[in-house]
């Protein structure tokens, strides 16, 4: 079998070496690209929080903690961070509650229904988040909003509900928009799980509900943790949804980062806030993953 390979000449041309595989070569353009256009920019971003910037130039060149201290000493920043955090937590939990049944149902469907469900899950993923946020403005907006129109005409309420421009609207929008991010990891694990564990549980006399909570959910814990961390991160750092559904006065930490850099043009403060956003986000994700790791031990022990 190896004869043909062995009789190949040892000398390999450059093009061959690149294609042949086995080497790091083919990845070099991508590595250089990421270093130039991702790593260097992010280093710049982190640096800008520690120097004073005016019109994109460092003014005195000196290292200063003023901006970071100013951000950390500002009670408003802490309030906004708290708001970003709980909005992300609430919407991530809601996402999980809504996503799990859909991913579970997918495993029990066959044929055309399975395909249709998959289309329902994937199509929002490929639709612009802006378009989907706009849909929520249409649904929740003012007296003419669809929700109010419907509820008023049905006589359920006699005063239009004020949902748009509140935290409720932001949470609703985030939950719906990030739903596919939670469904997909669950789907992969749930459709490949070993059903014999559940069957054993049923045979041993457990009810289906008990089996679901004590066998199925622990089995899929790694996917739950992965989905939870991902959706938390995208919710915590999203600034479009709070801006559009929360109204002009509504702000979160991510919205502040946008406003300081683009509207106020205070880049040092913007950079300091962005650094805070990024580090707290990573800290929260690490916390989720480590707590999740403890919860996952169940499935590892029994496997």
């Amino acid at each position: 079998m190896t004869d043909a390979v062995l009789t190949q000449p040892r000398r390999l041309g450059f093009a061959r070496r690149v294609i042949d595989g086995g080497g790091l070569w083919p990845a070099v353009p991508a590595l250089v690209y990421l270093v130039l256009f991702m790593v260097l920019p992010i280093i710049t971003l982190l640096t800008f929080g520690f120097v004073t910037i005016d019109r994109g130039a460092i003014t005195d060149g000196g290292f200063t903690l003023t901006h970071i201290a100013g951000v950390l000493g500002d009670p408003l920043v802490w309030n906004l961070m708290w708001r970003s955090f709980w909005i992300a937590v609430v919407s991530t939990c809601l996402t999980l509650v809504l996503a799990y049944p859909i991913a579970y149902a997918y495993g029990h469907l066959k044929g055309v229904w399975r395909t249709l469900l998959l289309v329902a899950i994937i199509s929002p993923l490929l639709t612009s988040a802006l378009v989907r946020t706009y849909a929520w403005i249409v649904i929740l907006g003012g007296r003419r909003g669809l929700l109010n129109q419907t509820l008023l005409s049905l006589g359920v309420i006699d005063q239009p509900l004020q949902i748009l421009n509140t935290s409720t609207a932001v949470v609703m929008g985030m939950t719906q928009i990030h739903l596919p991010f939670m469904i997909l990891p669950l789907l992969a694990v749930l459709s490949e799980r070993d059903r014999r564990f559940e069957e054993a549980s049923l045979n041993l006399g457990a009810s289906q509900v008990e089996t679901f909570f004590r066998v199925t959910i622990p089995m899929t814990m790694p996917a739950i943790v992965a989905g939870f961390a991902l959706v938390f991160a995208v919710s915590y750092t999203n600034f479009i949804i709070p801006q559009l559904l929360g109204g002009g006065n509504y702000s979160t930490l991510a919205v502040q980062v946008y406003e300081q850099t683009i509207v106020v043009l205070d880049w040092s403060r913007g950079a300091a806030l962005a650094t805070l956003l990024l580090t707290t986000c990573f800290a929260f994700v690490l916390a989720i993953v480590s707590v999740g790791g403890r919860l996952t031990r169940w499935s590892e022990v029994r496997r």
Binding site: M38, L45, N238, A274, L277
Partner: peptide
Amino acid sequence: AFLLSPQMMPGMVIGIASLFFGAY
């Protein structure tokens, strides 16, 4: 991990970082 790492970055961070680096 490095090739997939941009996924870990919020789009906003990539955007601001590019803007700042560009200005620099």
